[in-house]
Amino acid sequence: MTIHIGAKPGEIAETVLMPGDPLRARWAAETFLEDPELVNDIRGMFGYTGHWKKQRVTIQGSGMGMPSLSIYANELIRDYGAKTLIRIGSCGAMQAQVKLRDVVLAMTASSVNTPSSALFRELNFAPCADWPLLRAALQAADGKGIFPHVGGIYSSDTFYDERPDLIQQMTRHGVLAVEMEAAELYAVAARHGARALAVLTVSDHLLTGEALDSDARERSFADMIEIALEAAFSI
């Protein structure tokens, strides 16, 4: 048991899927896992452990933003021995060819600042996904007839961004989408020798203003979760 995770030793699997929303963690566990067991509910940040195709997996909410994600990723790896962490969440498209409901596999994650930034001082560290996981996710998507976008994303530490100039430059440089956690997940995983990947579903579009409603988001997220599970257990 840690400050933020109430699971007992052995109750967290080596493979952890991490949605930001704890209610999405519950939905994903009840939908995709066999016999999911609630192993954490401290601060309402639900975590469940169960089995998917006889493989043991935990689905643990991370909260919103990189500071919250950093807490859970550090404790999952350091205190519970998690080896593979896959973020499953929503993102906002930043390129015209990226459409609502599309899946994005984050090869890299740019940011203005992360909780890990102070460790690097003057170094501009480039957080990236684990290559075997990324390749496995691409193969899993192909097997489902899904054609994901693979490339760089932007992890923002602000939801209500007031830097249109920055958005314009990232769009100009081919950044696919924006979300709020992946850059820190990749940094924490690299620091501790764990595997990490972000598999994202496009829920809104910065260029067109389109957005999915809550029901459409839930239906669209199923493909993302299945890709993440297939990738985690095929390497």
Rank of each mutant, 00 (worst) to 15 (best):
R195A: 04
V104T: 04
D79V: 05
A129N: 04
F159N: 03
D204I: 01
S116W: 12
L23V: 11
F233L: 08
E37P: 06
Y48H: 05
D41N: 13
Q55F: 11
M94D: 03
D79R: 12
A183Y: 00
Q139K: 15
M45Q: 01
K83R: 15
G10S: 01
M64S: 10
E181D: 10
Q168E: 14
R217Y: 13
M94I: 06
V178A: 10
Y154T: 02
E226M: 11
A93E: 11
Q60Y: 12
K83F: 09
E75M: 08
N74Q: 13
L69W: 15
D213M: 05
I59K: 13
S220D: 10
A140F: 06
A140E: 15
T84R: 14
D142W: 14
K54F: 07
Y154Q: 06
A211Y: 03
R217C: 07
M180S: 10
N74W: 11
I71P: 05
G61T: 04
A187G: 10
T2P: 08
Y160D: 04
A93R: 03
V57S: 03
G209V: 02
D21M: 02
G89Y: 00
E184N: 10
V98E: 11
R172W: 13
P36M: 02
A82V: 01
L38M: 12
T201I: 05
Q95C: 07
K53N: 14
Q97Y: 10
S62N: 10
K144Y: 10
D142Y: 13
S70P: 05
T201A: 09
L166F: 14
H51Q: 12
M224E: 09
I42V: 12
A109I: 09
P127V: 02
Q169K: 15
F147K: 10
M45T: 00
F46Q: 02
L23W: 05
M66F: 11
M45K: 00
M64A: 11
L133A: 02
L123N: 11
E11H: 03
N113Y: 13
G47D: 05
Y186T: 01
W52A: 00
R101W: 01
I235W: 15
V202P: 01
E184T: 13
A194D: 02
F125A: 14
S203N: 06
L119H: 13
Y80S: 01
E226N: 14
A96R: 12
E30H: 09
S214L: 14
Y80L: 00
H192E: 08
A211N: 04
K53W: 05
H149S: 04
L123F: 13
E210W: 05
G145K: 12
T208V: 09
R195Y: 08
A232Y: 03
G143F: 08
L138W: 12
R217S: 08
G63P: 02
V178E: 06
N40R: 05
I59A: 11
V178R: 13
K83H: 08
L134Q: 02
E75D: 03
S62L: 14
M94C: 04
A13L: 06
Q95N: 07
M45N: 04
F46D: 00
L119S: 09
F125P: 11
G50K: 02
I86L: 06
Q139D: 15
A231S: 03
A82Y: 07
A13N: 01
P115H: 04
A228M: 05
G174M: 08
V103M: 09
D41H: 05
